[in-house]
Design a protein around this nucleic acid. Structure first.
Lengths: 138, 138
DNA sequence: TAATAATTGCACTTCTATTGCATTTTATTT
DNA sequence: AAATAAAATGCAATAGAAGTGCAATTATTA
């Protein structure tokens, strides 16, 4: 059964506001990771800072994750249901298309076990594959 | 047998200049990936733009590779001898320490085979592991 | 040496990210 | 319900990285 957005936010101790509901919906509709500018364009009436801080709040509470796809612009995407951003179970890979410049979450593609040398402790892994996406390679 | 820096540059069709030799040496001495600011601080007499373009030239000619470690600041590191930045043989992983903020190339740790869905074409892979490095975990 | 091409330095511009503070909205307590 | 506290929002401004255009310099070639 589906939880409402309100319930999701409350379960993460985030206050429910109109703005946050809208932004959550926007992210949920998108299949690709979005930039702050994308959100800004979608909500022209809202202030940049508010959108920025909303995304940041969502990120701190593990509702969205940041993606650094190498374009130099931070992108955001909703986490999957049940995600705790755990290094061993929740990390998936991201694909950045060099043609259309879109970045998508390949949530079915978990990151393989990565060995690091003795003395190093892994806390997080960022894996971005760049190339041509399915739409552009036709 | 070792090639001189001059020979390395010439083999990549990069003109040998005093500045470029210095920057190459600087990168070779470093064990960690450096930012443009790092280079700037090391060569205060030189102009930022020159350093910036030198790194860019080196990168285009596969002498250095860029690393996007998630800090939002581009870092650069010398490629290994014989590297062609080939996706199948030359890509190694990078480790970013959340404590000392340094990023190092784990050149012995090649990136495992990554499967992407049908229709997607891989051209490049960026893999950054974040955590605590060997020096900081003692 | 003259002509040509690449490199370097300077001054700006653009764009993203981020912060401080006043104001508004929401939640809590009396 | 009114008063109080706390958090969210909007505005303005700043910092910092990245990148560009052009003039001056240096190196290469004819």
């Amino acid at each position: 059964m589906m939880n409402t957005i309100e319930e999701i936010l409350e379960s993460k101790n985030i206050r429910v506001t109109a703005m946050r509901l809208l932004i959550y919906k926007f992210l949920a509709e998108k299949e690709i990771a979005v930039t702050l500018s994308d959100v800004e364009n979608a909500f022209e009436k809202a202030d940049r800072t508010t959108l920025y801080r909303t995304l940041k709040t969502f990120e701190e509470k593990d509702i969205v994750h940041q993606i650094d796809d190498g374009t130099g612009i931070t992108k955001y995407a909703l986490c999957e249901p049940g995600c705790n951003c755990d290094i061993n179970t929740d990390l998936h890979l991201h694909f950045h298309c060099n043609n259309c410049n879109e970045t998508i979450c390949l949530t079915d593609h978990k990151i393989p076990q990565i060995k690091v040398p003795k003395g190093f402790v892994s806390e997080n892994i960022n894996l971005v594959v760049k190339g041509i996406c399915d739409k552009c390679s036709l």
